[in-house]
C-alpha cells in the first residue's frame, strides 16, 4: 500500500534522475554545480533506481534527499555563484527556492516512511498537490508559467509606453552618419567618439575630434535628423 507522499517522492526522483542521467545538457549542469560529469551521471542513475525502489523500501529516499540538502548548503558556502544544477542546465544561483525544493523533498521522503497507507485516490491527490508546489518553487519551470503571466501583465499595463515618443535617438543619427560618403572620407582620421551633439531645425549636429598631420581640429557633421538621407550629410573641419 502507498502512503500519501510516496508517489510524489518517486515522481520527483524520476524527474531529477532522467535529467541527470540522460539529458544532453547534463554535462553543462554538472559543471555549473561544480561536479565531475561521471559523478553527476552516477547520481542520476542512483536517483532513477531510488525512484522505483521507494515503492518497496521507502527509506531509500531519505538519505538521498538529505544528501541534496547538505550538498546545497555546502555549495552555497564554498562556491556561492554556482548553480543548483538539480533538474536543468539553466544557470540559477542557489537560493531560497532551491532550499525550499530540497526541503520539501526531504519532508515528503520522511513522511513516506513514517505515515500509514492511504487509499490510492488520496495518494494520487496529495502527491499531485505536492508535485504542484515542487514545480512552483523550481526556478527551471518559470518560463512555462511565471513568464507567460508576466508577459500578460506587460500586455495589460504597458510599462514601457513612455518610450514611444517618436524622438530620434542619437544612435540612429550616428548609424546614418556611418553609412555616409562624408564619414567614409574622414572616418579613419577621427580621434574621438561623439564629443557633443545638438539639434538645429531639421539637422542634428555632431562634433568629433579629428587629427591630420599632427593637427587636431573639430569635425562637425550635419546629419538630417528626421529623414534617412546619408547623401545629404555635410562635413566641416574647423580649427580650434
Amino acid at each position: 500500500m502507498l502512503t500519501a507522499s510516496t508517489l510524489f517522492v518517486g515522481a520527483a526522483l524520476l524527474w531529477a534522475g532522467v535529467f541527470k542521467a540522460f539529458a544532453r545538457s547534463a554535462p553543462v549542469a554538472a559543471v555549473q554545480s561544480g561536479l565531475p560529469v561521471w559523478f553527476y551521471r552516477t547520481v542520476g542513475a542512483v536517483e532513477l533506481a531510488a525512484a522505483f525502489a521507494v515503492f518497496i523500501v521507502p527509506i531509500v529516499a531519505v538519505p538521498l534527499a538529505l544528501g541534496f540538502l547538505v550538498f546545497l548548503g555546502y555549495r552555497k558556502v564554498t562556491r556561492p555563484e554556482s548553480s543548483c544544477g538539480c533538474t536543468s542546465a539553466q544557470p540559477s544561483p542557489i537560493g531560497v527556492r532551491h532550499f525550499a525544493r530540497a526541503g520539501l523533498l526531504l519532508a515528503a521522503a520522511v513522511h513516506a516512511v513514517i505515515a500509514g497507507p492511504v487509499p490510492l485516490l488520496t495518494a494520487v491527490v496529495v502527491s499531485a498537490l505536492e508535485l504542484l508546489v515542487f514545480a512552483l518553487v523550481s526556478p527551471d519551470l518559470d518560463r512555462w508559467w511565471l513568464y507567460p503571466l508576466r508577459r500578460l501583465k506587460v500586455k495589460l499595463t504597458h510599462p514601457l509606453a513612455d518610450t514611444a515618443t517618436g524622438d530620434i535617438p542619437l544612435l540612429a543619427t550616428v548609424q546614418q552618419l556611418q553609412r555616409s560618403e562624408a564619414f567614409r572620407r574622414v572616418g579613419g582620421l577621427l580621434r574621438s567618439d561623439v564629443v557633443e551633439s545638438w539639434d538645429e531645425g531639421e539637422w542634428r549636429i555632431l562634433r568629433y575630434t579629428i587629427g591630420h598631420e599632427g593637427k587636431l581640429a573639430d569635425a562637425v557633421f550635419a546629419v538630417p535628423r528626421l529623414t534617412d538621407e546619408p547623401d545629404r550629410i555635410k562635413l566641416a573641419i574647423v580649427a580650434r
Binding site: 574622414v186 579613419g188 550635419a222 566641416a236 573641419i237 574647423v238 580649427a239
Partner: peptide, 24 residues
Amino acid sequence: RQVLTAAALTGATAFGSLAPEDAL
C-alpha cells in the same frame, strides 16, 4: 555651437581638400 553649425552647413574645411587616401 552657432559657428560650428554654420560651418557644417556650408562645408568649410581647415585642412584644405581631404582626399580619401588621406584617411587611409
